[in-house]
């Protein structure tokens, strides 16, 4: 490699490294803003905004879905397997909404610590499998539960 070309190569590497460092610092300082939702632990510990709207993400707790007024208002618990937050939502739920499913709700906390959602989005996980495989995966898990 001629000296001129080597110099150009070094310049390019320096440029890419410089841009990379700048981006790292920028993204680090905006880290909280880039989080799409708060976890239930953060909300339970009071880190989420009190007055403003924010998004809350978590898994729907098994057996927690109820419709207290027999209307379209639905109440369920969300968990990140450490803390639980109760959510109330009036409206149409997405196809993937079910117990054990990850969801993201947009709304605000009321005075009683219940999260009143205006919008509920289902968060799909990264698993893809045929129904038969899903069934056969469930069986050992159920047997383990009964064994306890």
């Amino acid at each position: 490699m001629t000296p001129v070309r080597r110099q150009r190569l070094i310049l390019i590497l320096l440029m890419v490294a410089g841009v990379g460092t700048a981006a790292t610092f920028a993204l680090n300082s905006f880290n909280d803003n880039l989080m799409y939702f708060f976890s239930t632990t953060e909300v339970a510990e009071g880190q989420a905004p009190k007055e403003a709207k924010f998004r809350l993400g978590g898994m729907v707790v098994e057996g927690s879905i109820s419709r207290p007024n027999d209307g379209i208002m639905v109440r369920f618990d969300l968990t990140d397997f450490s803390k639980v937050v109760t959510v109330e939502y009036t409206g149409i739920l997405p196809d993937l909404f079910r117990e054990g499913q990850g969801i993201v709700a947009n709304g605000r906390l009321n005075k009683g610590g219940v999260f009143v959602a205006e919008e509920v989005l289902a968060k799909h996980d990264e698993n893809y499998m045929p129904p038969e495989v899903a069934d056969s995966l469930k069986k050992p898990a159920q047997q383990a539960k009964m064994g306890k």
């Binding site: 993204l27 989080m35 993400g57 996980d125 499998m129 045929p130 495989v133």
Partner: peptide, 24 residues
Amino acid sequence: QWWNTLHQGPTVSKMDKPSIHVDM
């Protein structure tokens, strides 16, 4: 992986074995 996102995590391009059935 760095942030909470609505988009799901990687299925194929991760160190572990892919979380998708081989026929798919």
